[in-house]
Amino acid sequence: MKKDLLIIDNITKRFGGLLANQNISFSIDEGEIIGLIGPNGAGKSTLFNCISCYYNSNSGKILFNGTDISRKTPEAICQMGIGRTFQLVRIFKEMTVLENIMIGAFLKHAKQGDATAKAEETANLFGFTEKLSLEAGSLTISDQKRLEVARAFATEPKILLLDEMMAGLNIQEVRETTDLILKLRGMGLTLVLVEHVMEGIMPIANRVIVLDYGLKIAEGTPEEVVNNEKVIEAYFGKKYHAKRRGNTAPLQ
């Protein structure tokens, strides 16, 4: 396992006067599952967009396998081996499930036959065997989100950045999603998961990074993070935190 596969080094992203990411630094080892959490507007999606070069960060570096990728294009990022999904799904709604995955598979398989084979294999892995010829737009939200991951997976990346895979899913679907993520890690992938809600990723993340108002306020194992005072404050507010401190009951 390679250490420091991806290094985020002092990334700052401004929107006018708003600092959406402020001097964010952390690094990710190969094979890790990293949770990136924080309240609404904390800057999680912005950081994803900086890593995948949909946004140009104002300062800082992003090193992937030792090379600075912070000034590349989104397509180059994917070609180098970093796949991503979007918070609001961006699947090709008028194409079939198979075609959606094929578009990803074409990156490494130029011939239609090869891409089809790769896409079918990927579809099996993601549980789409029975739905290959369905129009993607007709799938449930949970299927659409999974399809977006399958499509990114078909580009054969080293790292997958998944933005809010679990938002809006029911408990059963959350469980299936965590199983899927563990399966992907088992296949050698490194995963960064943005989640708004903590429950989904706490059981599977190796490390969790917490953002709030554009700043990194905590980093550590899930246990460390949920007991971190700054994190509790960010999530539940100062008042709740003060009340909790008077209370001796353990967290959760």
Binding site: R90, I91, M95, K111
Partner: peptide, 20 residues
């Protein structure tokens, strides 16, 4: 591949870029 890519570009250019 060209044809598939062109249709992807039509439907969602940003989504297409994320697939290289």
């Amino acid at each position: 591949r060209l044809g598939y890519y062109c249709r992807a570009i039509k439907e969602d250019p940003d989504g297409a870029r994320s697939l290289g």
